[in-house]
Simulated scan of single mutants.
Amino acid sequence: MRETAYAKINLALHVRRRREDGYHELETAFAFVDVGDELTARTAAQDRLTVTGEFAGALDDPFGNIASRALGKLPRAEGLAVTLDKRLPVAAGLGGGSADAGAVFRMIRERYGLPDDWRERAAALGADVPACVESEACIGRGTGTDLASLANDLAGTPVLLVNPRAPLATAAVFAAWDGRDCGALPDGPASQIAREGRNGLEAPAIGQCPAIADILAALRGTRAFLHRMSGSGATCFALFENLEERDAAAVAIANSNPKWWQMRGRLR
């Protein structure tokens, strides 16, 4: 079995209020890139996870890894030996761990089927996991687990992801949020929400990782029709009209900032 854990981006992320349980009410437009981590699996006597790839070193607790926990959420008659090729940076606003868990759910769905309460099991792993199981553009409300359909007129759009190779803890960014209601998401298809929306976590994230501002400035200097920070950072994305403009931007940014991580793809 083989699955791609598609990188998640937030076309817009509006934080509405802090909840008494410590979480935040938000409204977001999820979108997914057609590249990300890669998972392969084969049947085994018991579940196990092996992590390889550029960012494997950042996942030093295999039992606490969300992909491993996803295996434990979905009991089967036989085990799975999963190899995770970690290509996405960790704590990067791309939902990498949640995307890995979503890919595990899809592999198990394909071979064994999922229990009726799979959405609740996914949400117990993390707020982004239910959206990452389907990895299709959608609206997320509440903590991000209340999902609604989204007219996706951006499918196929070339996208460039850029990260300064600096992990940024989601909890710390939310804690630094200024408490101002960002307001409701705009109505309309994905393109309208992307153009008229915002990321309400951008300012607190830049306060903790100033390199985000440098990336946004670099993307602003390209031919992208939209650039924004994703999630709680530090990855930023840019959307382009065509592949040539995206690839030219990628080369220019790599030449001027060779230490930054980047990945090219298209929106699903």
Rank of each mutant, 00 (worst) to 15 (best):
Cys209Ile: 08
Asp178Pro: 01
Pro167Ser: 05
Val173Lys: 01
Gly207Asn: 08
Thr170Gly: 03
Gln192Gly: 02
Ser191Leu: 04
Gly188Trp: 04
Gly197Glu: 01
Leu185Trp: 00
Ala175Val: 14
Arg180His: 10
Arg180Thr: 10
Ile215Thr: 02
Glu202Asp: 14
Pro186Arg: 00
Pro167Asn: 09
Pro167Lys: 11
Gly179Met: 06
Arg195Ala: 01
Leu201Tyr: 02
Pro189Ser: 06
Asp214Trp: 08
Gly179Val: 12
Ala205Ser: 11
Arg180Val: 05
Glu202Trp: 13
Asp178Gly: 12
Phe174His: 15
Ala190Pro: 07
Ala194Ile: 04
Arg195His: 00
Gly207Lys: 02
Leu216Val: 15
Arg180Ile: 06
Trp177Ala: 13
Leu168Arg: 01
Gly183Tyr: 07
Ile215Asp: 01
Gly200Arg: 03
Asp214Val: 09
Ala190Trp: 06
Cys209Thr: 09
Pro189Arg: 07
Gly188Gln: 04
Ile193Phe: 02
Leu185Tyr: 01
Ala194Asn: 04
Asp187Ile: 07
Ala194Gly: 03
Pro167Thr: 03
Asp181Ser: 12
Gln208Met: 14
Ala194Pro: 01
Phe174Arg: 12
Ile215His: 05
Gly200Asp: 10
Ala176Gln: 11
Arg165Glu: 15
Cys209Tyr: 07
Trp177Phe: 07
Ile212Met: 05
Pro210Glu: 10
Pro189Gly: 11
Glu196Trp: 07
Ala176Leu: 07
Gly200Leu: 06
Pro210Leu: 13
Ala171Val: 14
Ala176Asp: 09
Ala211Gln: 15
Leu168Trp: 06
Leu201Lys: 01
Pro167Glu: 10
Asp187Met: 11
Phe174Ser: 12
Gly179Trp: 12
Ala194Cys: 06
Trp177Cys: 12
Gln208Leu: 13
Ala213Glu: 09
Ala205Leu: 11
Asp187Gln: 12
Arg195Thr: 05
Leu185Cys: 05
Arg180Glu: 09
Ile193Cys: 10
Gln208Gly: 05
Cys182Tyr: 08
Gln192Arg: 13
Ala213Tyr: 11
Gly207Met: 11
Ala190Thr: 05
Gly200Glu: 09
Ala176Asn: 08
Ala176Lys: 02
Val173His: 06
Ala175Cys: 15
Asp181Glu: 11
Ala176Glu: 09
Ala211Asp: 15
Pro167Arg: 14
Gln208Cys: 07
Ala169Pro: 14
Leu216Glu: 12
Val173Thr: 02
Glu196Val: 02
Gly179Leu: 11
Ser191Phe: 04
Leu168Asn: 03
Glu196Pro: 01
Ala166Ser: 02
Leu168Gly: 02
Ala211Trp: 08
